[in-house]
Design a protein around this nucleic acid. Sequence first.
DNA 1: GGTTAGCACTCTAGCCACAGGAGTGCTAAT
DNA 2: ATTAGCACTCCTGTGGCTAGAGTGCTAACC
Lengths: 339, 339
Amino acid sequence: MDARKRRILGTLIDDYIVSAEPVGSRTLAKKYGLGISSATIRNEMADLEELGFLEQPHTSAGRIPSDRGYRYYVDELMQRPQVGSDTVNRVRMAFSAPVREIAWFIHQTAQMVSEMTAYPSVVVAPPVNDACLGDIRVMQLNSGTLLLVVATDSGMVENRAVPLPEDMNFEQVGWLAHEFAREFRGMPIKELKDRILDPLSSDEERYHGLWESLLAWMSDWRSNDDRVTLAGSLNILKYPEFRDVGKVERVLGFLQREQAVEQLLNQTSPQSDQVHVIIGQESPFDAIWDCSVVTATYQLRGHIVGQVSVIGPKRMQYAHVVTTLEMVSEELSRALKWA
Amino acid sequence: MDARKRRILGTLIDDYIVSAEPVGSRTLAKKYGLGISSATIRNEMADLEELGFLEQPHTSAGRIPSDRGYRYYVDELMQRPQVGSDTVNRVRMAFSAPVREIAWFIHQTAQMVSEMTAYPSVVVAPPVNDACLGDIRVMQLNSGTLLLVVATDSGMVENRAVPLPEDMNFEQVGWLAHEFAREFRGMPIKELKDRILDPLSSDEERYHGLWESLLAWMSDWRSNDDRVTLAGSLNILKYPEFRDVGKVERVLGFLQREQAVEQLLNQTSPQSDQVHVIIGQESPFDAIWDCSVVTATYQLRGHIVGQVSVIGPKRMQYAHVVTTLEMVSEELSRALKWA
DNA sequence: GGTTAGCACTCTAGCCACAGGAGTGCTAAT
DNA sequence: ATTAGCACTCCTGTGGCTAGAGTGCTAACC
């Protein structure tokens, strides 16, 4: 791979990313001032195809990048643009609102990223299991219903309205919740869940039932469900490779399977602060073999707890997406510093 | 409109609903034992077209129903099937879970309806404005952050994490919230919002700031946003009339504009317990002129507070959808009796 | 020896003509 | 009033054809 081959490959992919049409030698020679003739480019392109970086849809068409070609482009060739300061400001503004639930940040992030990139965006929220119990409160909704509110210290909140147990009144339940919170505040939710299996944890006969309910309910706390927020899914309809409804269905259907998405982002992306790119068949899920996924991680209290991610056609604006995600995930981590 | 015309129109629409192909006189005569020849049917069909109930895509094609034809079908012709008792049981089971937030019911409903009908489903939650304040609590998330939880007596809950004000500690905020709840419990949220404009409501100098924050926050409570839950939107991709990505984009794009959807369901559907059907251009929104919308209302405390609704191609399984929605909205109203 | 002009070759997309088929409307017979 | 028959219309699918884009190869060039 000499410099000229790299130059040609990079230019070709740049062109294909915006045109979505196979790129021929003539186009390359004319449109971009490469200083060499189309014949030379043809020779080089034949080499690049032999090396596996390019493909030909059919004999008399131009070339398109192969998965391997995209991979080389992402790893070696693409030029990262600077993120405009107005974009950064926009993100900072959004994150500086006086709202502090983690769920809110997740939604904001997904929304902004899909708008900024014009691709669908997926954001994975921190796992509840790793967070610590912040507080539990009981509220009275009406005469027969109470609302349990459980919060982690990092700002994840879960509500559950339940009937008031027959043999208790509100004060009692409130007192119980207070005791529960006093006993377990600061304990990781995961440990709390484990308690359920430990019968010794419920001392008082009287409150046995509700105490167990509280624990049972904790165990129920959606640890794997509902962690995934999807935004801008309709963006995908804009790209010509998805003019076929069947493809759209495959991809969007996949994106709605939260567990699969979480698995994809969790397992394949290394726990690093590097942006990670999955191209086409590199994905373990064949539903998105026509797509590329770009993933960045964000941190809470110094630990990586979730991902911000973009999905689009393999012909994706990698440079723009990568820098955008880098910036957003960094800002998100910063915005979550209070937690 | 004699009986035979009605019979022909009804049969033709029944056929078109499943086949999605223009229906010819021969098909009608052969496939369904109408006891008359195709020539007679042709004459009748010509009449029906003149009356505006049928259309011809082109001269040598069969007929398809016009909007007016569907309207007549829905109002007069269609045969409502019985809802299977297993289906009813499934819905009752789902609604009998020991969970009682209204938001949960809304999601369940949308999910179930879209599965049962195989169309996208939209459910509108009760307006917050009409509900009454149930309780307010303040929770401590961590040293600098507090979580306000506001609930209506009907089980709608809203959380907001905010920084602890500089000049207050948690006890003070907690006491304040307690006072606030004591003062305003049972008051409609709408009235609470109006208070914001009334400067006399804040007596105590000391707590002026937070008191106002609480009120301001109430006013912020998404009264119009977020009322709309959409489920099964990908179902629409299954129908041949949406093989064109542009159409899909128009319709799904519309469904994501919550305010428009709410407006559609609120304004056009009468406040009755009758199921209401909007066919094609009867809708004020041209984005869904290729679609029909079926809407049922549900009740909370004897008042109609929201809608359960299905959207699909004009060639919709009206009979099935109408009976399903009737059943589901009834069960939903029943399930919300505790509130 | 690398580069390039030139040329023959290949393959697709688009166009046109054509035939088959489905369905109609009309007429005349029942 | 109904229906069989028939001419007519229009869409759809097919096949052949051409134009154009792009390639690979060869021979000339620097």
